[in-house]
């Protein structure tokens, strides 16, 4: 597999503030790469560096093996971008903006594809952009992006204003693009979306990538949620290695187990006569929370899902 996007030790300073602190990401061909992290972690800054909009202070970044700053124009002919906060020209219609964006790539407009997307996303392209809601402006950017025959899609929180139905449509197009061997860099807050769409995930915090890998790989690093009811109360659960976030429910206990300790924990509790056992895989949210809250507030994070 060849890398479509590759950054090495990418660093960006805004004055004295270090927005990116040695970011390394790789997006391979035909892959959906999830880029997650809270507000201000450096997602959008990374994306803007990749788009040649911001100039990196140090480090390398390439797309299609070309330099993102020096060859920006060449690269952008094969890249489609959707920002999270789409602002359009108030006195142009949505249709005009879509054509404008498509024309800018220099290629002819695939009218059939354009119409199909407009229809699917239920966009009225004859309205002026000033009258569009946030979601509709987002749709304009998405239609323009998917109507372009790009090899790399850079999507920065692209669904932040969409309703669930439109989110579904969006996901269909991401899968379609992936099937055609295109690459997608998807930055998102919506972890369920990332979980559904992405092959690999990178987690960024304070300008550093702190975790990267496939979801399966990442799950190994995390915990399974268990809900157990036993005939006799389980003793010593608190002191068992790898048990976290222990909570007494009405007639059961819920807790999280480090994946590598799962075997020994199950062996221990089975001796108390299991009546009910529910297990849920760690969600991306657990993962995320663990990384973000873990350091400050111990083990409070996980128990939300289960």
């Amino acid at each position: 597999m060849s890398a479509v996007v590759e950054t090495r030790n990418l660093t960006k300073m805004f004055g004295k503030f270090k927005a990116l602190d040695g970011v390394d990401i790789t997006v391979n061909k035909g892959e959906v790469y999830g880029f997650i992290g809270p507000n201000g972690a450096g997602k959008s800054t990374t994306i803007r560096v990749l788009l040649g909009i911001l100039k990196a202070t140090a480090g390398d970044a390439t797309i299609f093996e070309k330099d993102v700053w020096g060859d920006a124009v060449e690269i952008h002919k094969r890249v489609a971008y959707v920002p999270g906060d789409v602002n359009l020209w108030p006195n142009l219609t949505g249709g005009e903006v879509i054509d404008l964006f498509l024309k800018f790539r220099g290629a002819d407009i695939n009218t059939k594809r354009r119409e199909e997307l407009i229809h699917k996303f239920k966009l009225d392209p004859t309205k002026k952009c000033r009258t569009y809601s946030k979601g509709n402006r987002q749709k304009v950017a998405l239609v323009a992006a998917f109507a372009a025959d790009a090899d790399l899609y850079i999507l920065d929180e692209p669904t932040s204003g969409l309703d669930p139905l439109m989110e579904q449509i969006f996901q269909e197009y991401v899968f379609e693009a992936k099937k055609e061997g295109k690459s997608i860099l998807l930055s998102s807050h919506i972890l369920s979306e990332v979980e559904k769409l992405c092959d690999r995930v990178g987690i960024i915090r304070e300008g550093k990538i702190i975790e990267t890998g496939t979801l399966t790989e990442l799950r190994h690093l995390t915990r399974t949620n268990l809900l157990v009811a036993t005939r006799s109360p389980i003793s010593d659960l608190n002191n068992l290695k790898g048990v976290h976030a222990l909570k007494q429910q009405e007639d059961a206990v819920s807790f999280q187990v480090d994946t590598e300790e799962l075997d020994s924990v199950i062996k221990h509790i089975s001796s108390f006569g299991i009546e009910k056992l529910e297990s849920a895989p760690p969600t991306l949210e657990d993962l995320f929370m663990r990384h973000y809250e873990g350091e400050e507030s111990g083990d409070k994070g996980g128990a939300a899902n289960g």
Binding site: A72, V73, P83, V86, F101
Partner: peptide, 10 residues
């Protein structure tokens, strides 16, 4: 930003 993400010079 949108314009710059397209193949347009800086």
């Amino acid at each position: 930003e949108l314009i710059r993400s397209l193949p347009a010079g800086r």
